[in-house]
């Protein structure tokens, strides 16, 4: 290094650094659309809510509809099932949280909180996707009379709460509401 090259570096280095940084900023900006295109597109998001007519469901009947590519269980439960669900004490549950997106995140998994609410206690709406690894549980099966997942043997009760097996959480209840007495809007 002689004196001549020692004198110049500040201005030159600044120029090289600025150019390099501008190039890096450009590269990152270009990368964004390539990442962004992976997100659900506008037509997928537009399908986010559906309305289901449940007038034909008498107590003891279920309906499975597809919402966001997953099955949703809608069941008009019998009084016996509702009473069984209400009788279970919280400490008996593997997952004591309601997992009901219509309620606060820490709501307890009582029989009432795992239903469609006051006056609609017989109705239950849940995503039919086992919280273990996503298989679809079979309805009205297993030793608790609720749902039973054939993949890895998780057993849910009549309120869709996990009672036995590898699944960690109760079946998720999505955002839903009765828009009419016989129409449920999911999402």
């Amino acid at each position: 290094m002689n004196n001549q090259t020692m004198g110049e570096p500040t201005r030159r280095d600044f120029l090289y650094l600025t150019t390099g940084m501008a190039g890096a900023v450009g590269a990152v900006a270009v990368a964004w659309p390539f990442v962004d295109q992976m997100r659900p597109d506008a037509s997928t998001l537009a399908m986010a809510s559906i309305e289901v007519d449940v007038s034909a469901l008498t107590p003891g009947m279920s309906l499975t509809v597809k919402w966001r590519g997953k099955p949703v269980f809608i069941r008009n439960r019998t009084d016996k099932e509702v009473q069984e669900a209400a009788a279970v004490k919280l400490e008996q549950l593997k997952d004591p949280i309601a997992r009901n997106q219509n309620l606060p995140a820490d709501a307890p998994a009582t029989g009432a909180d795992r239903s469609a609410g006051k006056g609609k206690e017989n109705w239950i709406v849940m995503i039919g996707s086992c919280t273990h690894l996503g298989c679809v549980p079979l309805g009205q099966a297993g030793e608790y009379g609720g749902w039973f997942c054939p993949c890895h043997g998780s057993v849910y009760d009549t309120a869709g709460r996990i009672r036995k097996g590898p699944a960690p959480e109760n079946l998720l209840m999505p955002i839903f509401s009765f828009t009419k007495d016989t129409v449920i809007k999911i999402g």
Partner: peptide, 13 residues
């Protein structure tokens, strides 16, 4: 056309 209309940044790509 789905790419052009609905996919995020699809028109650009």
């Amino acid at each position: 056309e789905g790419i052009m209309r609905d996919v995020n940044h699809g028109w650009l790509l």
